[in-house]
Design a protein around this nucleic acid. Structure first.
Length: 276
DNA sequence: AGTGTATCCTGCAGGC
DNA sequence: TGCCTGCAGGATACAC
């Protein structure tokens, strides 16, 4: 569910409210959201201050005082909600974990399908983990030529390539389709067949759609919510994702749906020709 | 190396 | 109304 724009939206909310709070107590309702025994997790986290909140790919990263990092991946249906006051909000339908904060506030994790994970990592472990992720697409440091060189090293379909977090961090199924449409690239094109110009157009399309989606606070199809519980507004701006059979907004050709690596890809066969 | 398949889960929409 | 199937923003492990 949550891709870069959704996670970025959540992180911005949390970064403005959480730092300076101390975690007084953790309540675990679903132990399978952790990769370690809950007792140890609670003991480790309790008493630590939250110093900062940041994003790496689709991960929410809380810097704790020990120092340690609490890394939250929302999976498909995870939510991380911040209630600043003494009121913790209405009880969620699928409670996961509650972080009770000092001097006041509650950080609530909920997750219907429980594909999400919360992990407590040492600085070294998180550094290694982060190094396995590809570059951040919105960072200036990623040049057209670096991007094109990376594409040259893979023969997998470009849609699959975009979803692989080791290639580029934060892209998921929605924005992969949207970026390919904006770049005029067919989702099945082998990555290493993209010309420099095509790679440049794809990166530009990816950056444009990610920026616009962040502005709209993300795409709510069903489950995603911001840290304040609001829906994102980008669903109405999607051009191909989920528009199977509807006319292309650019040329009126019906949008097609194909399956790649067991996941749907949406595209316009006229705007994104498979053979040049 | 790349791809298809399965797995972890719950909920919802659509067909009958 | 109920039952069944397929599908869903993610990540990983496996066999070929």
């Amino acid at each position: 569910m949550p891709e870069l724009p959704e996670v970025e939206t959540i992180v911005r909310h949390l970064a403005s409210g959480l730092p300076g709070h101390r975690i007084r107590e953790v309540r675990v309702h679903q132990a399978d959201l952790l990769d370690t025994p809950p007792d140890g997790f609670c003991g480790d986290v309790a008493g630590q201050e939250i110093l900062a909140v940041s994003r790496r790919g689709k991960n929410i990263v809380l810097s704790l005082s020990r120092p340690q990092f609490l890394v939250v991946n929302l999976g498909m249906t995870g939510r991380l909600l911040f209630f600043p006051g003494t009121e913790g909000g209405s009880p969620p339908s699928h409670p996961g974990l509650d972080f009770l904060l000092e001097p006041t506030g509650t950080l609530v994790y909920t997750d219907i399908r429980r594909f999400g994970r919360l992990r407590l990592l040492s600085p070294g472990a998180w550094k290694e983990e982060s190094a396995r992720l590809g570059p951040e697409p919105l960072q200036k440091g990623l040049s057209d030529s670096t991007f094109h060189q990376a594409l040259q090293r893979s023969r997998s379909p470009i849609r699959s390539w975009l979803l692989d977090q080791r290639n580029i961090a934060g892209v998921g199924n929605i924005y992969a389709s949207e970026a390919l449409f904006r770049g005029g690239i067919h989702p099945r094109r082998p990555a290493d067949t993209l010309s420099f110009q095509e790679g440049k157009a794809l990166l530009a399309g990816l950056r444009a759609v990610l920026r616009q989606a962040v502005q709209a606070r993300g795409t709510t199809l069903r489950d995603y919510r911001t840290a304040t519980g609001e829906e994102g507004n980008f669903a109405e701006a999607l051009r191909v994702y989920g528009r199977n059979g509807q006319p292309c907004l650019r040329c009126k050709t019906p949008v097609e749906r194909i399956v790649l690596g067991n996941r749907s890809a949406f595209f316009c066969s006229r705007c994104q020709p498979e053979a040049p």
